[in-house]
Amino acid sequence: MVIGDISYAFLYDRKDTYMYKLDPRIKLVYVGFTTLTVFFAKNPAVGVAVLLIQVLIAFSGGLLKKVVSLIKGLTPLLLFIMAFNTALVYLTSPSIDIQLLIYTFFMMIVRVFTTLIAFTVLTSTTSPQELMQAFVKMKISYVYAYPLIIVYRFIPIIFQEMNNIYDAQRARGLELERGSFIRRFRNIVPIIIPSIVSALFKARDLAEAMEARSFGALPQRTFFKEIRIKKLDLLFILTVILIELACFPIAWLFFS
């Protein structure tokens, strides 16, 4: 299913390739630079080249399965949006150059996929803990960065709670599968309210427990497994930047 494919693509699972060892800041720079590169590219050949580079990078990090999953999940949706968008433009200005239309459509797809693949590489190989540290090192207070981890940690718990709530209400006759649309929509209330109540209680208990371990007491904190920029990181980002930049002159030479 679409949601399953997309969430698998972005989900972090611990594995052992070099990509997991890279500093998250480097990966953030990689995503940012790649996005800029592909958006500045005018020549479709450059676009395709940069896209293929992302696939190669993902492959080198052992992430091909994730990329395939992403493409599977996103393609129908994206194609639909792009087609709709293009058709709209064509209908409102019928005198528009067909070639320009096709070119725009094509570049949109290339850009979106390039960015998303790079993003997948980032999120699936970076743990919330690492990402949080990256933000802290970029001068965001850890008190604001930490919720990133908390959200991730509680997602399965919240799902489980909502399932329990759904079961408890169904046991009293609540039906979400049958009945008029209005009825079914109103029947969401007995699911939403207990879910919110449950989340609020969790938040309060969690705040107490964090307070009791000095969260926020000092302006800074140490990190047990601190992220560090190593030679591998510099090597990676330099390679990526050079290869992506090289696409421009090469394309100009061969594909003008």
């Binding site: 803990q129 427990a209 000095s214």
Partner: peptide, 23 residues
Amino acid sequence: NQIVNLTVEEEIAFGLENLMFPS
């Protein structure tokens, strides 16, 4: 509702990190 982190190791380290204990 007391556990903040994704892994056990991170959870045990949590309070010590907040108090700036070295690695």
